[in-house]
Amino acid sequence: MVLVFAETWNGQFKKSTFEAVQYAAACANAQGSQAVAVVVGPATAPVESLGAYGAHKVLHLHGPEKFETAQHAALLGDAAKELNASMIVISGTANGRALMGAVAVRAEASVISNVTALPESFGPVRVVRGAFSSKGIEVCESSSARTVIGLVPNALGVKDSAGSDAAFEDRNVSAASRATVVEQQLASGTIALPEAERVVSAGRGMKAPENWGMIEELAQVLGAATACSKPVSDIGWRPHREHVGQTGIQVNPQLYIAIGISGAIQHLAGVSSSKTIVVINSDPEAPFFKAADYGIVGDAFDIVPRLTAALKAHLN
């Protein structure tokens, strides 16, 4: 049995949840077993709809109102033990990443995070993962009867769904929480970086924070998340949560557009697994061009508004 954490956000399933459910279903199918999705807390989306992504059954645990690491880990870990899961799939969102280690301890499992592909084998679980901030690829093997798999969001993408509704079971649960959420601040209308399929990122070449309007417009036309290089967030031009790279968020989008970013090794370490990279830089010698698929040499202040217009024309 393969268990998968079906994370919700404001009662809705996240895209990363569908990806994780499909991953779990593929693992279950390969072993002639079944995938059970666990939803914790309020869900406005119909939980049985996860069947379309391959879940055989959905276990809906009612009680917790908000995410709390220790409490969620206890509920998921105990469910995995009760159902005798051989694998526990968790997508590497902010909450998912916080959970993995605690769930592994609670479920008496081993844990392999940063997983980027389906397992090569199941007995023992052997799987490819990223290491050294995408500078290396590791094949890792679990020596435990139960393995937590931490999946990199966007590593496989969400495929068209074909399955039918899943069976579901509602349960009222209580598990001790060890922290109380007293406040949440959400940047409205922004797309979370780890899950974003497109990212528009800008660096010190933008000269000043008031020049970010054109970056945001380009991102908006593409439905992209915005990101920045480390010095840009260090000097406070942009919030920390936008800092990508080896010591910031690691992203894995379909399209990464880098504007006025030199392409230092620490920046590349967090973005180089993007499928397609476009670099816009006024310096033809900028190291980023060596890591790019498409490059444009020129002044961002001239190119970005024209690119936004060209994309707008194409997308309409």
Binding site: V111, G136, E138, Y294
Partner: peptide, 22 residues
């Protein structure tokens, strides 16, 4: 330990960049 590395490799490099006229 509950897991162990089997092997390491380096990611495939990108093919040459295509430059586009500004």
């Amino acid at each position: 330990a509950g897991s162990a590395p089997v092997s390491f490799s380096k990611p495939a490099g990108k093919s040459a960049v295509q430059m586009i006229d500004a």
